[in-house]
Nucleic acid binder design. Sequence first.
RNA 1: GCCUCGAUGGCGGAAUUGGUAGACGCGCUGGAUUCAAAAUCCAGUUCUUUCGGGAGUGUGGGUUCGAUUCCCACUCGAGGUACCA
Length: 975
Amino acid sequence: MEYNFREIEAKWQQYWAKNQTFKAENPALSGVEGVSDKPKFYVLDMFPYPSGAGLHVGHPLGYIASDIYARYKRHKGFNVMHPQGYDSFGLPAEQYAIQTGQHPAITTEANIATYRKQLDEIGFSFDWSREVRTSDPTYYKWTQWIFIQLFNSWYNKTSDKAEDISTLISIFEAEGNANVKAACDDEIEIFTAETWKNYSEEEKQTILLKYRLTFLSETEVNWCPALGTVLANDEIVNGVSERGGHTVVRKKMKQWSMRITAYAQRLLDGLAKIDWPQPLKDSQTYWIGRSEGAMVDFKVDGFENDKISVFTTRPDTIFGVSFMTLAPEHELVSKITTPDQKEAVEAYVKATAKRSELERMADVKTISGVFTGAYALHPFTGEKVQIWIGDYVLAGYGTGAVMAVPCGDERDYAFAKHFGIEIINIFEGVDISEEAFTDKENSVIANSDFLNGLPYKKAMKTIIYEIEKRGFGYGKINYRLRDAVFSRQRYWGEPFPVYYKNGLPQMIDKQYLPIVLPEVEKYLPTEDGKPPLGNATTWAWDTNTNTIVSNDLIDNVTVCPLELNTMPGWAGSSSYFNRYMDPQNSEEFVSKEAVEYWQDVDLYIGGSEHATGHLLYSRFWQKFLFDKGIVPTDEYAKKLINQGMITGTSAFVYRVEGENKFVSKGLIKDYKVQPIHADVSFVNGSDELDVEAFKNWREEYNDAIFIGENGKVLSPTLSKGKGANGENKVLLLEEDLGGDKYIVGREVEKMSKSKYNVVNPDQICEEYGADSLRLFEMFLGPLEQSKPWKTSGISGVYSFLKKLWRLYIVNDEFAVSNEEPSAEELKTLHKTIKKVEEDIANFSFNTSVSTFMIAVNELTALKCNKRAILEPLAIIIEPYAPHIAEELWHKLGHSTSVSNVDFPIFEPKYLVESSKEYPVSFNGKMRFKIELPLDLSVKQIEDIIMAHEKTQEQLQGRTPKKVIIVPGKIINIVG
RNA sequence: GCCUCGAUGGCGGAAUUGGUAGACGCGCUGGAUUCAAAAUCCAGUUCUUUCGGGAGUGUGGGUUCGAUUCCCACUCGAGGUACCA
């Protein structure tokens, strides 16, 4: 009776699907007995984007880990929800559509089918009845609904939460907006209740838009006219688009934005109460970028009505200001520049416009700038301060202007030195002739009027008080975080539930959702530069019938144009974890009962690349939904783990330059060679190349000559035989080569199709089975670290599974005995239980696999065949290798799934030892070992050890200075 | 530049509060079984050695009876971020 993984795995995968073994019940809704008594546990994976390439072995790593955890929790008596779905809107499907005309929905559907097949083959315990797809109208209906909720809300800083826009309107009607503290647009005019009531409906709406949590704003974007779209920073390389190399310009566009900045402080504070990796928290903290300081206005000499506002974190150094720097794009630049400087300034502004923001920021070494000829007036001293422009100041950050204090800031110092600007020292007892003094905590202010002699903290308080008293500024907490642009000029995304009347956005009522993506002829932007939805001919809203109608009917009275942008990639993923709780609900986003029961995610596993994208936006939406009373917690995931990347081990062959000849790795120093990626599937575990497979790979290599490691020309004689893993292959026999082989070079790189180092899970499942794949992925190393993939090692876990199987087999028949287990057997079992439970608690799955191997090795050595040992063993291994466990469990005579059986209880009594093999060290170096009873006193141990002949041998007559004995641990003799 | 993580045999890695460095697996070497192979099993495998031993966890210091583990300085690698005022 062989371990036939193909048969076993197919059988149990079908069984689980048929019996809905992993369906998680919502007790309140289902009334399923027994479920409601169990505590809930919610294990979540970051759902995948279903790309055309399918899964490679890197993808399931986190899924396997979370699956082990979910399965373990079922054994521990929890009602576990472990859902999966697809983040199925996205660019690749759209690009494929542009190239081929194939509708993205069709491509996406096909890709999902591939993913599903691959996921099923690995034996995950997903509850597929809860599947969501972000591109499914029944799902994005709720994305649109949340958008409407955001539109209908404003952020009240007084109550410190989002409130319905109606509460704001009531305040306006009662007392105007003078006392409203809200997260809102920067420049809002103050009005009274009287004025508000006299505003037209349009004027009112325009004002309200400045307060809403999602709002239209003019945003500067990277516009690529050739592609007809906006590009993200990372899609621009050297100032041109990554795709196609087209020109990119900065352009202002009216777009939807999300007022995430309203939540900056709460997003920061919330980090303290969630168990997420510190590096991830650090990067969110940095991204939010809280800084305390002051806004200060500087008057411009000769321009009575203009002022330059700056934000500074060091208002205490204001007496050290010797110049100001404006971003070249600053609106005052053209106005205040003197005729003398005009030419230079204009040239500089022009040069800056050509540089991308990225380029400007990457170039740290060159100091550049131009004097405008104008002067600002120091608010305290009234002295004239030069106004410069410099491209290190960014228009998009803060006010686009900096008050420069060279003695206290390295960059200002370098700038001042470079252009010979005065450097005023305002620090007591500090030499600034060589560099700026930036240690603010240890600074004492001097040369600064009323601030003289004050340390940093006192000086800050005093100066902010003075600034506010004199009325040219105020203390302010600034955040680096920007409001998030929420419009995309794409086709394959969620349509907005928005139409425009007289240029003002109107929300479509909830009952008419979803607004379904229209059909278009082409997926490209229109010729006049409108987004792809501009191609739709039926894309107008009839306000009488509340239906989408033909554009021909637009009259801007009853029929109005619909929004042409779509939502960004992160829209659908920002709250999907809540939707899993109640995925089929068509009346509500999530029912009260469901969300009260499931509450939040107990364990979330995914990649760290989402640190400041998805993981920040989703926290923002959760806080908003919490404010609205829709969800009961304002942080949605208690615990988060980042799985590390699996890198590929690329293989290289070496072509002699100018020839169609390849030399083996050991010979490359004798030739001028060019390394070429070879597909890793042509290489075996000993880095030997299957030369024939490589030759047949591409026509250009058909006639290539290969020189082996020993310098022999590899003969092309073919022979049938077995490959390294037992598969049938046509290969070169060693005799034919005179024992010579072609050895490839290896290098660890990111796993990628273009590097030919991708390994698919399907291949592995086919050759070794899903249980082997699962064990091997865990065995590779710590979950959170990145690690290279090398398929050759998989034979180790495969042998282990065969060895485990054989424990249950006697004379080729399945058989276990009912004999009482021995102390040794019980010890093996219980130390395994203990270690595996500790490992799961620590997410240390790699060490669990080792522990299983040790247990099976020991039980094999003991020839253990006893039910009392082997039955619990099948349970504890189930989370890791569920198929073989289920098979063994049923063979042991059970008729229901092993997945909900109680985990064996660890009994410490089986591990109690009476003696210990003490390591005896001399000066910290272990020299020999001695077996001693554990109940000896320190004195007794010392007497025994000092009398020992090996001790005397080591000491060679010396008298030890000290003998350290830690009972149960070590003996160390010093001297 | 800054932030974060990491560096242990030929390779992946283990060593849970400072206490036997190299568990477990791959690979490799030798052997058993076999007509042969696959599979399986057994033994060995950090380096070095005059076979007594000696050295050894990126480098250099420090704390300690004792350091892969703690502290300081540095080198290299990976990821992120970026003249952030």
